[in-house]
């Protein structure tokens, strides 16, 4: 109706600003290399040629936190590593998301003892939890797609009210 009718076949679409921004954010979300243990190997396998993650826009894995949007915490986080994890999360620029990959990152996993942080949500806020020990590459991709659904539904926060 309205503008679109008048323009016809000129190749113009109208949408909301939020949809456009979220579309841009999900189509090229770069993860940060944060593979700690066994889940890191499955993350590498998800990045390799059999279950290709670059179909979803994650072509590169940036080791630097300043250049990445998504932190996939893959593996068990020990008490010595937790401050390092928090520091890296703080160094990432907004907007940022966190996927807790695997059982050890979600809830401590098999290791219910003194040395492992029982769930990485004691250290950083988590958006998506992917279960499995280790999760199959397809499960990780499903987790990433779930995150994309979540991001597509995000609304802008009014900076005056926040």
């Amino acid at each position: 109706m309205g503008v679109e009718e008048k323009l016809g076949d000129m190749g113009v679409v109208t949408t909301t600003l939020e949809t456009a921004v979220n579309w841009a954010r999900t189509n090229a979300m770069w993860p940060m290399l944060f593979g700690l243990a066994c889940c890191a190997i499955e993350m590498m396998a998800a990045q390799a040629s059999n279950y290709d993650m670059s179909r979803f826009g994650m072509e590169l894995m940036r080791p630097s936190p300043r250049q990445s949007d998504l932190m996939i915490v893959a593996g068990r986080v020990s008490r010595k590593m937790a401050p390092v994890l928090r520091r890296l999360y703080d160094q990432m620029p907004e907007p940022k998301w966190v996927i807790a990959m695997g059982d050890c990152a979600s809830c401590g996993g098999v290791f219910n003892n003194y040395a492992i942080v029982q769930g990485v949500d004691e250290v950083v806020p988590v958006d998506v939890y992917v279960a499995g020990c280790p999760p199959r590459p397809e499960a990780l991709i499903h987790g990433v797609v779930t995150l994309f659904e979540k991001v597509k539904g995000e609304k802008f926060k009014d900076p005056a009210k926040a």
Partner: peptide, 8 residues
Amino acid sequence: IGYLHTGI
């Protein structure tokens, strides 16, 4: 080392 100490 020790950043992955799991207490196995």
